[in-house]
């Protein structure tokens, strides 16, 4: 019996970054694999470490095929990110759930007409606090950015009291953390 897999709208690439200070940033970034069906997504997800089990300094990135997980990529350079910053104790309680919900939002194209604005998502495992972000293509596209932020926040199950911010990569690249201003909040 022939069983047809369920195709995704996009082919996605999973990247893994492991911080090795003896190598360049780009050498530390490795493409793990690409997939374009629901079934192949789960095969990959169940095969790799949960984000909460990674060591500090590691990242996973999931980007549309053809977009590299860096600001400099042509698809990213005018864009920005909806950033979720987690407190240390949330690694144990919420990190893996938030990351899975993020992945499902991406592969399911859950941002309706604005899904084309999405480039990918990144999770950073860091001792001082983990971060998850959805990257979009155009920081000036207000309607798209706001819609994506609202839908994302809803999928994470964040209360209306929690505020998340959108930062343009151009600002992130030039300003230090304390000066970082959010272009939008939801």
């Amino acid at each position: 019996e022939h069983i047809t897999k369920h195709p995704l709208q996009n082919r996605w690439a999973l990247w893994f970054f492991k911080n090795d200070k003896s190598k360049t940033w780009q050498d530390n970034l490795r493409l793990v694999t690409k997939f374009d069906t629901v079934e192949d997504f789960w095969a990959l997800y169940s095969h790799i470490q949960l984000a909460s089990k990674l060591t500090s300094g590691c990242d996973y990135s999931l980007f549309k095929d053809g977009i590299e997980p860096m600001w400099e990529d042509n698809w990213n350079k005018h864009g920005g990110r909806w950033l979720i910053t987690l407190a240390k104790q949330q690694r144990r309680t919420e990190l893996d759930r938030f990351w899975l919900e993020t992945l499902l939002c991406l592969i399911g194209e859950m941002f309706c007409d604005y899904s084309d604005d999405v480039c990918g998502a990144v999770i950073n495992i860091r001792a001082k606090g983990d971060k998850i972000a959805i990257w979009t293509r155009e920081a000036e596209n207000r309607d798209g950015v706001i819609h994506i932020g609202r839908v994302y926040k809803e999928h994470l199950g964040l209360s209306s009291k929690v505020v998340i911010g959108y930062q343009a990569h151009a600002d992130t690249a030039t300003k230090s953390g304390s000066l970082m201003k959010s272009r939008f909040i939801v």
């Binding site: 069983i3 195709p7 995704l8 629901v38 997504f41 789960w42 499902l104 194209e109």
Partner: peptide, 20 residues
């Protein structure tokens, strides 16, 4: 049309065996 899947649909496949 666009291939859009909601969360519950995607989760239904999480523990499905790859081959039946």
């Amino acid at each position: 049309g666009k291939k859009q899947y909601d969360r519950d649909f995607l989760l239904d496949f999480q523990f499905m065996p790859a081959c039946i």
